[in-house]
Amino acid sequence: MYIFYFLLIFMIIAAIIAIETKNLLSSVICISALGFGASLMFLFLRAPDIAITQIVVDILALIILIRSTISRDLTFISGDKEFFGTVVSVVIIFIIFLAGVKVFETLPDFGTAIFARVPNAASQTYIKEGLEKTGAANIVSSVILDYRAYDTLGEATVLFTAIIGATVILRKKAKKLLEEPDL
């Protein structure tokens, strides 16, 4: 049980360093440390699917971020935005945090699953009948591709749109098109 506190505090320290450091490269490396902490946390939360996916996605995200930041940011941008707006936003964030802590006290304790208290919850049905209804021994896979496959179809659409958008933004002719407005 203490491993969760240890990993969460490790992730919070990595996030603070990533936010407050001046150098962008070390900030990116701290983000990947945060991702590996999250991957270990998923492994101890008995979710091996997400742990493996998270660790591979983190490697790709690290390389994408380093590609974007290396040898680009030669001037260190320090300081925050205007003073008044900063103070107001920090105060609002702190008030939201206090309210959120009050809300989380009403949740059941950590370690008692919420779906186990509800009779006839959807997850109970998936666990009991998932193998004989769909034939997949991995219940997560049967939920993704059989029970809730509409979700995966929407996911494929969103991913396709995001990558095509990135390709259109990064294409070579865009600069030329901006210079010739009557095209």
């Binding site: 939360l45 997400i50 699953a113 919420i114 997850s123 666990i127 219940i139 997560v140 939920v143």
Partner: peptide
């Protein structure tokens, strides 16, 4: 078993 739905 833990909850499979949030994992998916």
């Amino acid at each position: 078993s833990v909850d499979p739905l949030p994992q998916a």
